[in-house]
Design a protein around this nucleic acid. Sequence first.
DNA 1: CGAATCCGCAACGCTATGGTTGCACATGAC
DNA 2: GTCATGTGCAACCATAGCGTTGCGGATTCG
Lengths: 115, 115
Amino acid sequence: MSTAGERAAAAELFFALGDRTRLSVVQKLGAGGARSATALSHGAKVSRQAIVKHLQVLEGAGLVTHERRGREVLYALEPRRLDDARAFLDGVSAGWDRALARLRQLVEEPEPPRR
Amino acid sequence: MSTAGERAAAAELFFALGDRTRLSVVQKLGAGGARSATALSHGAKVSRQAIVKHLQVLEGAGLVTHERRGREVLYALEPRRLDDARAFLDGVSAGWDRALARLRQLVEEPEPPRR
DNA sequence: CGAATCCGCAACGCTATGGTTGCACATGAC
DNA sequence: GTCATGTGCAACCATAGCGTTGCGGATTCG
């Protein structure tokens, strides 16, 4: 089977990415390196606590790790999980391409081998 | 700016993918070509109506299109949107790589140009 | 025609999600 | 020591998400 809890993991991944605020956080972390929750909340339209919750969701999905640094906590992107997401999409696309190829075969072969 | 409503679109995309049932539908459509809602609901653990709602979400995100075919409605995958999702992930990864490169630069250059 | 499918709409319930606020606890700066 | 900053915990609220059921309207098949 190509999919059991594997799909659940992917769903969690995409779910974590499926929110404007969280996507914004991911982009900031991707572009600027590790930062604290309060730092991330400065540009944002929501409170620090909201950002913290989002960071926890992202960490739950494995997209982010945290590290205590003195009195502040730095969050950093985990780019390998992004690769996982891409791999999943690649899988679906590949399946689609194969399906198309099969269709084309059927069309371009007017006389399938009889008996 | 690299991101305004562009991020919102990406969020909608990922949101649509961020659900087990919907991911399952996407995989089925990807692997087997176009199918009707009822056909899709046969293997699933939820009702046909649930599947229909999910298909509407997927269509709202541009991941799926529908076409009336006699008395049934066929849903098909729109793989270009998958590419969009991948492009977004690529962008974040690229930013991260640049950030790492900058860090390395700073480390490997013990004496930054004084004055 | 009648029967069997398949779709579309609407009402409803439950839970999770995203967000807020308030306050107590560490830790670093002065 | 004192003050400022940053974090952590908890309660709470509103709404959107996911799922169900029930029923009426098309459309194909016999």
